Simulated assay, not measured.
Amino acid sequence: MGRFINPFTDVGFKRIFGQSVHKDLLIDFLNNLLEGEKQIKDISFLDKELLPEFQGDRGTIYDIYCTTESGEEFIVEMQNCEQAYIRERAIYYLCRAMSRQGERGANWKFNLKAVYGIFFLNFEMKDSEGNFRTDVVLSDRDTHVPFSDKLRFVFLQLPCFKKEESECENDFERWIYVLKNMETLQRLPFKARKSVFEKLEQIVDIASLSKEERMKYDESIKVYRDQLATLDFAEQKGRAEGFVEGTLDVARRMKAMLIPVETISLATGLSLDEIAGL
């Protein structure tokens, strides 16, 4: 095991971004993510139970829910494994957070606060064209003029971030580099450049964990690895089944062309009895 925690585990991710005592880390990350757009000065963590949990998400999806001093809401998620409806899931959670702002009575005038979804993805989305960062906003289809700033989706595909330490051009890229490589590093870079990285190093050092924290972290590592192993097995099994079906299809086609079964057997590796049964 390396010197620093794995930020892709539940305990690791929430230790970095989900603790009120260290909320300056999340504030700094969000400000760098939205540099030039807004400057967050304070956040408050909201009740996690406001976001429903699904059993299938355990070990692969971790979320943090907070609000800024101006009332804007942020849902920050780490997702480790690809889902068929990842975009729909993001829309659902942000719209659900938006709908909770509604108030009973005729005096409420739909004065909604913006809801942001920040999604760390430890995989590549389908049809994403390999872009590290995808920003989704509400705008006119043809003119691209903004329609509303109340919903914002930011997807960060970590495998698509290829920069090395010396190539990082700003603090946002430095954050991503550190998060992506944390478990393999022996020191955290950029400490001399910005104090937040020095504080981050102290928080993520495994040696700084208490006995109870270490037990929780070890369990989260186990859940994380078990889940990834299960998904990897399913993927390999699917490829193997696809290969077998492809071989059978080729054999059927060759058989339909009246190619001798001995030749089909040599070409596909199927036995004569298997070919006869097609």
Results as ranks from 00 to 15, higher is better:
residue 180 K to W: 05
residue 194 K to C: 09
residue 236 Q to L: 09
residue 136 V to D: 04
residue 87 R to Y: 04
residue 144 H to P: 01
residue 38 K to D: 05
residue 154 V to R: 05
residue 116 Y to S: 11
residue 106 A to W: 05
residue 173 E to S: 04
residue 202 Q to D: 04
residue 175 W to C: 07
residue 46 L to P: 01
residue 173 E to H: 14
residue 230 T to G: 14
residue 92 Y to P: 00
residue 268 T to Q: 07
residue 198 E to R: 07
residue 107 N to D: 12
residue 137 V to I: 05
residue 39 Q to F: 11
residue 65 Y to G: 02
residue 131 N to L: 09
residue 56 G to I: 12
residue 239 R to G: 02
residue 8 F to H: 04
residue 55 Q to P: 03
residue 24 D to A: 13
residue 58 R to L: 06
residue 50 L to T: 12
residue 212 E to D: 14
residue 272 L to P: 04
residue 152 R to C: 05
residue 172 F to K: 07
residue 176 I to N: 10
residue 53 E to K: 05
residue 185 L to E: 06
residue 29 F to T: 06
residue 76 V to I: 13
residue 185 L to C: 07
residue 82 E to R: 12
residue 121 L to K: 02
residue 18 G to Q: 03
residue 211 K to Y: 12
residue 172 F to S: 02
residue 62 Y to G: 01
residue 173 E to R: 00
residue 91 I to S: 04
residue 61 I to T: 14
residue 121 L to M: 15
residue 168 C to Y: 05
residue 83 Q to W: 06
residue 108 W to N: 07
residue 260 P to E: 06
residue 182 M to Q: 07
residue 164 E to D: 14
residue 72 E to Q: 06
residue 168 C to K: 04
residue 169 E to Y: 08
residue 235 E to A: 13
residue 271 S to L: 13
residue 75 I to D: 04
residue 42 D to L: 08
residue 75 I to G: 00
residue 101 Q to R: 01
residue 155 F to I: 10
residue 71 G to W: 02
residue 10 D to M: 01
residue 125 M to T: 04
